[in-house]
């Protein structure tokens, strides 16, 4: 009897270990249908090269972050020629729209629906209530009494809250249903 010349395992055949999208071994699991978008979104975010780690909060009592742009030691008895040019960068001034400080709030993002806009789970966003939302603004909106962050677009004259992640559905508004915008997102603070 001759041994079978087909079937069975062959060395070097099949997908190479670690050749999937994640670069590490994977295994199948069961997930609840309702949580599919969240899990898919998480995996999408996980695949991204620059992915969100858990940002630690900035020190609570940090002063308004002056960064010295020009600094030089003063030689004894000889004034530095740069002394007159010493200036500082102020992050508050850079991040907050001038004159809008009292209308600017910082909120923390939870969830994955805005990864396409570069807003990740755990990021902080600067929200300006003094700005009027426009078509295409990323906004914080009040939906069912909760705050949600989405892109505001208009379809056939009706406002739509659009997720920046294909796994999340858009939120449309029926005739007579009001959309309430809490503020306009101007910046995202993302820890790398």
């Amino acid at each position: 009897m001759t041994p079978p010349d087909h079937g069975g395992s062959r060395p070097g055949a099949g997908r190479k270990p670690g050749s999937n999208a994640y670069g590490e071994p994977t295994h199948p699991i069961r997930i609840p249908v309702s949580q599919t978008p969240t899990v898919l979104a998480f995996l999408d975010a996980y695949r991204q090269e620059t992915r969100a780690s858990h940002p630690r909060p900035m020190s609570q009592d940090a002063p308004p972050m002056p960064l010295t742009a020009y600094l030089s030691a003063v030689p004894a008895g000889f004034p530095s020629p740069a002394a007159d040019y010493a200036e500082e960068l102020d992050l508050n001034q850079h991040l907050i729209i001038q004159g809008h400080a009292e209308a600017t709030f910082i909120l923390r993002v939870t969830g994955h629906s805005m990864v396409g806009a570069g807003i990740f789970d755990g990021d902080e966003v600067l929200v300006d209530r003094a700005m009027t939302p426009k078509e295409g603004s990323v906004v914080v909106a009040i939906v069912n009494g909760d705050l949600t962050i989405k892109r505001l677009i208009f379809r056939a004259g009706q406002p739509v809250l659009q997720a920046e992640n294909p796994h999340f559905a858009d939120r449309t508004f029926a005739e007579g249903e009001d959309l309430s915008v809490w503020g306009v997102v101007t910046r995202v603070l993302h820890r790398v």
């Binding site: 909060p57 909120l107 993002v109 807003i119 705050l147």
Partner: peptide
Amino acid sequence: YTTCWRELREVRA
């Protein structure tokens, strides 16, 4: 919500 980094208001994405 507005004065402490650890207690910021959360917003769902």
